[in-house]
Design a protein around this nucleic acid. Structure first.
Lengths: 159, 159
DNA sequence: GCCAGATACTTTAAACCTAAAATATTTAGG
DNA sequence: CCTAAATATTTTAGGTTTAAAGTATCTGGC
């Protein structure tokens, strides 16, 4: 093949990027929907609640509300309700730091940590299954390519 | 370098896929958030409303509610409210087909179509800007890789 | 013609989500 | 010390989202 891509219409690059964005959004929605459904059916937990617990599990020292909202890329007001519900289930607790009475540290309770460990194992298996099309090299490549996107588009690099 | 990737820990593939999923979700959320904010600020329209209008603009004959909910990958009950609000703004209309009184066809009004054309042009420019890191070859490659994901994970291939 | 099941849409309840305003507290300048 | 600005969180209003239940209509078997 000397003339590459006979069937590809000569779209402008912006159209191609739009197409890429639609694919990206569609893939994320599809996987997210499937994971959400399994979390609900098998463990009676919502995805946002799982996301918060995952963030807390990675930071042993706990996090305040602002850190949580930034890490999960959701609005700060939103985190309040999610933490309220997790706290009502005794999966997390709010801890007042001595120095700053405006904020507090959110931590997993022992119950929350052990429950999360169980759900996280299943979650990893589901993701492994849903992304089974990607071998190690493709996954690496894709991770690399997606790397810069999120950080550059929201906040971080505003001068 | 004879031994490739000295710094990459020898993670199991499932961990790598999990990492990929987190990147994918983060990228999608970041871009989506940025687009949502611009749609709201510059054109006073929500992203779901824009998504519905985009779907309708591509299908000249209009679509019914079920088709819309499947194309946008949102629940059917959800579409009702979005169409209600668009209809209140006279951007879409519900048209009763002669044959089936359970359903109806949703179409863009002329006002809706012309308004969408304006917003869509801006939207394409924003996506072009936000995905500027990708050249044509990378975009093609990524589109290809993401292609199978969405369809395989929700519904379509259930036997 | 009748009726069981399928299909199309809406409604409901609960959770999520954002932006903006409100509240409380801390910090820094004077 | 006092106060303006910054920071941390909650509250509010409006919209989005899902799953499940409800209503209306259609279809096919009899």
């Amino acid at each position: 093949m000397t003339t590459a891509k006979l069937n590809a219409a000569p779209r402008p690059l912006s159209k191609q990027r739009l197409r890429l964005w639609l694919r990206l959004l569609r893939a994320a929605r599809g996987i997210e929907g499937e994971l959400r459904e399994r979390l609900r059916k098998e463990y009676a937990i919502t995805m946002p609640q799982f996301d918060v617990m995952a963030a807390l599990a990675r930071k042993q020292g706990g996090m305040n509300m602002t850190e949580l909202s930034r890490m999960l890329m959701v609005s700060n007001g939103n985190v309040t309700g999610i933490i309220d519900r997790l706290a009502a289930e005794k999966l997390v607790l709010r801890q007042a730091p001595a120095t700053d009475r405006r904020s507090f540290i959110v931590r997993l309770t022992p119950k929350g940590a052990s429950q999360f460990a169980v759900v996280a194992r299943a979650h990893e298996g589901w993701v492994d299954e849903l992304l089974a099309d990607f071998d190690a090299a493709e996954a690496d490549h894709l991770i690399e390519m997606l790397g810069g996107l999120a950080s550059s588009s929201r906040g971080e690099t505003q001068s």
